[in-house]
């Protein structure tokens, strides 16, 4: 559990982070969003003490971070940044092993941990491992950066716009990877991002920042359903908030058995985890008013346009 208690950072008389109090549960992914310069990075960097708070405290599992030696603290916290920051004179494998080596792990342990991580992130240890950073693609370098951050099995992972420089396809894959890894390892993650869709897709909770203050801290559905301030609403993009909302909910929630009153459907069967937004998109694209959706327990279900439109507006 991470607690920020009345944390502020003042630069030249300006509070770039202003009296922020937050509690983040273990094993959750919190996204921090906000306009540029709103203090997201500063907030993040106060957790691993790359920036020292001007006032307030940060606690991890009830312990004050201020009394732990900074290097020692940081070795327990993973840190990923946009430009990946790989050490250009070290191979990918050596980069990934940085923190385990600092912690004095045995060499064999470091080597097997590096292999394990590379395999988990779909990097071939024998091909990518010996390469230098300038011999990697952007996506590969980024995954090496994530592997490096996870190397010493941190319970907390800080990510500052980790996917900002990736193309949409690679980014989607990286997001999926992160989701998978986070669920599997139970790591607590703080993710700073500019991409609202990313935040909605990945986060358990979203903290919206503006001028150093938290405007709203809530689960994605609540943020979309009840933006606390006009700023939050604006950040969501008012035009497509219904689609954002639909994209959070599984279409299976509104499915009914096939052959019921409304009549039968034809066409392809959507996968069972498809969201309402995907179901609606399929209807528009194929010119139907109903689609089938796979049901692990029996025959495919039917989702109708009316049901989706009703569900797309929070009560």
């Amino acid at each position: 559990m991470i607690e920020l208690r009345s944390v502020s950072k003042v630069y030249d008389g300006v509070a770039v982070v202003d009296d922020v109090t937050l509690t983040l549960e273990r094993g959750t992914l919190t996204a921090v969003v906000g306009t540029s310069g709103s203090g997201k990075s500063t907030l993040l960097r106060m957790v691993n003490r790359l920036v020292e708070p001007t006032s307030g405290q940060v606690l991890i599992d009830g312990a004050y971070t201020a009394v732990i030696a900074a290097p020692e603290l940081r070795r327990k916290i993973g840190y990923v940044i946009q430009d990946h920051g790989l050490f250009p004179h070290w191979t990918a494998a050596r980069n990934i092993g940085t923190v385990p080596v600092l912690l004095g792990w045995r060499r064999a342990d470091v080597r097997s941990r590096v292999r394990e991580l590379m395999e988990m992130l779909q990097l071939d240890p024998d091909v990518i491992g010996p390469r230098f950073p300038h011999e990697l693609s952007g996506g590969q370098a980024q995954r090496v950066g994530v592997a490096r951050a996870l190397a010493a099995r941190p319970e907390l992972l800080l990510m500052d716009e980790p996917f900002g420089a990736l193309d949409p396809v690679i980014r989607a894959q990286a997001q999926a990877d992160l989701h998978r890894v986070q669920r599997r390892l139970g790591t607590t993650v703080i993710l700073v991002t500019h991409d609202m869709a990313e935040a909605i897709r990945l986060a358990d909770r979203i903290a919206v920042m503006r001028a150093g203050r938290i405007e709203q801290f809530a689960p994605p559905a609540d943020i979309i359903a009840k933006p606390a301030t006009p700023f939050v609403a604006e950040l969501l993009g008012e035009g497509d908030r219904a689609f954002r909302y639909l994209s959070l909910k599984p279409a299976a929630d509104v499915a009914r058995p096939d052959g019921a009153a409304e009549g039968a459907a034809d066409g392809p069967v959507l996968p069972g985890h498809a969201t309402m937004a995907e179901a609606l998109s399929e209807m528009i694209w194929t010119g139907r008013d109903r689609v089938r959706i796979a049901n692990p327990d029996g025959d495919p279900g039917i989702v109708t346009r009316e049901a989706l439109i009703r569900a797309g507006r929070p009560e």
């Binding site: 691993n48 020692e72 940081r74 070795r75 990946h84 920051g85 050490f87 004179h89 940085t98 600092l102």
Partner: peptide
């Protein structure tokens, strides 16, 4: 590069470790 020094600090290298393992070699 700033991203490299920032990563080095973020990984928990001490000043001395950063100097000898990162700054001077680069």
């Amino acid at each position: 590069p700033r991203s490299v020094t920032e990563a080095a600090d973020g990984m928990g290298l001490t000043r001395r470790q950063r100097l000898f393992h990162v700054d001077v070699p680069l």
